[in-house]
Design a protein around this nucleic acid. Sequence first.
DNA 1: CTTTGTGCAAAGCGTTTGCAGGTGA
DNA 2: TCACCTGCAAACGCTTTGCACAAAG
Lengths: 158, 158
Amino acid sequence: MALDEEKIKGILKEKGLKVTRQRLVVLNALASKPDSHLTAEEIYDLVKTDSPEIGLATVYRTIQLFMELHLIDRINLDDGFVRYEIGDMGTKKNSHHHHHLICLSCGRVMSVEDDLLDELEAEIARTTGFKVTDHEVKLYGYCKECGGNLIEKNKTSE
Amino acid sequence: MALDEEKIKGILKEKGLKVTRQRLVVLNALASKPDSHLTAEEIYDLVKTDSPEIGLATVYRTIQLFMELHLIDRINLDDGFVRYEIGDMGTKKNSHHHHHLICLSCGRVMSVEDDLLDELEAEIARTTGFKVTDHEVKLYGYCKECGGNLIEKNKTSE
DNA sequence: CTTTGTGCAAAGCGTTTGCAGGTGA
DNA sequence: TCACCTGCAAACGCTTTGCACAAAG
């Protein structure tokens, strides 16, 4: 997935922020792996191939900045690592994030675009008066491949 | 919410684990605040009133143990703190957790028991072949009180 | 008596921060 | 020029660990 650098430059300039090589490189690293949910350290390693002098602190600062600009999202899979993924770049301006499927067997993380949750949110607004503006959904289970294996091993019914 | 100490003792003994005062005190602390999502430090403070000699390390070790025994659940509200709440004690053996409503204005956290997600999970199984066994849902927004205030301030339509 | 658990303090580890020098506008 | 940004290293805060002693079974 190519990054629209001009757009990013525009966003930065608009806020009086400077366009630096480090910022572009970090964002490009995230953009190059749209479905890998990278840790700060992984981003750092990726980025070092392009910019060996970059510091880990800069990566952290850049991540924070882009989080505030809503250009990237944070994901916490509760495996002890905080991860990041590139956002929709404002292309869709849909503040609702996608859901994450986390395979308990192989650890793979997949994303699903689905807004069946709207119904749940409406239900909650009705019963509790709570107005939902955003959600984070993590679904744990077994992916197609791992699930298949489990069925082989665990053929009890059906 | 009173804790069924006999049941806990049984669970521990069954695993060859010892029943210590510290373990009971930690679990009682969680049980005494079923809807407060406590950090390790908060549990430590609570527990110190009953057992001033207890160490923070013991609290952490005990929390871990009870997590493994599925007696307590971890919640991460992405506010920089990891929190814990007492589980359903195996009374319902329903591995599906409740959802959390997190108010972006006052920070309050509420729980909702709802399984509208079953539908979403079925949909996902159908389309992706991913078998969901558990989920974690965080809904961000504004609670009744804060939402009301927002409406006052932001009366644009209706 | 043996094994497991505890308290303390030190170590670990991911993340943040202070500061001097560098760089973009 | 001048404010902003970066790299480095030190500081931080939460959590884990090593070890000797204590307690449970």
